[in-house]
Design a protein around this nucleic acid. Structure first.
Lengths: 248, 248
DNA sequence: GTCTATACACCGATAGAC
DNA sequence: GTCTATCGGTGTATAGAC
């Protein structure tokens, strides 16, 4: 059951015909309704029937736009990653130019804010994988991860020379890991020295973990103070990082 | 629909009767089957029918031991937290007395190892909350969090005086947060100064985030090297921590 | 305590008429 | 492109016989 060609369909060079525009509009409407349903009932409750109900259609109308439930889910996941990355980027972009709060912290707070504003969509991306849904290999997840990495990489390491980054003082990396990281397809602009890549992953884990615990309610006993704990953790992360980067 | 008294049933002072022992044995058998089902098909697929099928029973037999699906889930969640905490504790306990790897890192690796060994059960605890399942307030989750906190608290801060911990150098904590943390019911043995509590939460997020990303497949591009990245991150965490604790 | 039978809901997917 | 009708499956929960 191939699931290509139907939803996004790389547009041909020619301008979209009326039929195509209508189709795109309908597709968009379905996506919005599906997103709304997830927001209200959680990712696990997503079903074509429920979306159809919400739209006043029958299921078969939907099958005309999405060949299967998986196709719809894939579209939603892709859009989720896009929106999250855009939110992080927007947070960085809209920060005042000489803000006292470091850009990396701003980016992290953008990540957290999006997750808290859209907990169910965040679950769709980073929670338990959906029952009987297999994400397409080399699919949206991979691409999205790279885009996010690129943003955080820039905010963490911009302004340092490659030599500095290569000399970052971390706990020992085995030669095997070192060469592996060195030959990893680079997400960002320039190549990233292995110690920097390792710290990037560590930082992502740190950031992500605090957000996950909060969104899934495991730190609710902190109440409103979760924001400040998060901020403190990210500021500490940054100073610890700078502490590990040698002077030029 | 009250769900008490059925599964664990605080035992009366008298020794358990034959009937009670039989009941306990059957309950245990059901729990094992349910755990097996989760391990094979994931938490979302858990249903009384499926468990009953696996046991060669009918659903109604199960209703005799668990008044509802929620009751069964609660029992499984509780057991999950217990097992995870026990695994972390066991990792610390079985470490060689003068091992070069710090006890905190050992504990963290115990956490990671359990999650990787039981990814579906880990999902049950820390993944997307189950559809239509509401954990009992002040329930197993809260208790379990405290137990885990106590372990990590010990490994992070044992050997330091309270004065040292109170003088930990973190990014600024607002007075409001400071007093909030100070009056938080203490999870561990002694009272924990606010900066230490804040760093404990930060560390838990760090640890948890890396594990979550790995278990849910978001860092699979690192392959076997995820273990080493994790180890490095935890070692860095520990040295950064010591860097923030002033000498006595 | 375990069974059959049943009520009532949900789901994905397909066939074929219009 | 949308509909009705349908197949074959999932689930929670209850009633009542044995």
């Amino acid at each position: 059951m191939p699931a290509e060609e139907h939803p996004p369909a790389s547009p041909p060079a020619a301008p979209p015909s009326l039929r195509e525009r209508r189709r795109a509009a309908a597709t968009q409407e379905i996506l919005d309704a599906a997103e709304g349903h997830i927001t209200e009932h959680g990712p696990a409750a997503l079903s074509l029937r429920a979306v159809a109900r919400g739209l006043g259609m029958t299921v078969q109308a939907l099958y005309h736009y999405f060949p299967s439930r998986d196709a719809l889910v894939t579209a939603l996941v892709t859009k989720g990653y896009d929106d999250l990355a855009a939110a992080v980027q927007a947070a960085v972009d809209t920060a005042p130019p000489h803000s006292p709060v470091p850009r990396l912290v701003t980016a992290a707070e953008g990540y957290r804010r999006w997750a808290i504003a859209h907990p169910e969509r965040f679950q769709l991306l980073y929670g338990t994988p959906l029952r009987d849904y297999a994400a397409p290999a080399e699919g949206p997840t991979t691409q999205a991860t790279r885009r996010m990495s690129a943003i955080f990489e820039r905010e963490m390491f911009d302004g340092f020379t490659e030599a500095q980054l290569a000399a970052i003082d971390t706990a020992t990396l085995s030669p095997s890991l070192h060469t592996y990281l060195a030959q990893l397809p680079h997400f960002g602009e320039g190549p990233l020295p292995p110690p920097a890549t390792a710290l990037l992953m560590s930082a992502w884990g740190h950031l992500h973990g605090l957000v996950v615990l909060e969104v899934f309610g495991h730190t609710s006993f902190l109440g409103d103070h979760q924001a400040e704990i998060f901020r403190m953790a990210m500021e500490n992360l940054l100073t610890d990082l700078h502490h590990r980067i040698p002077p030029p």
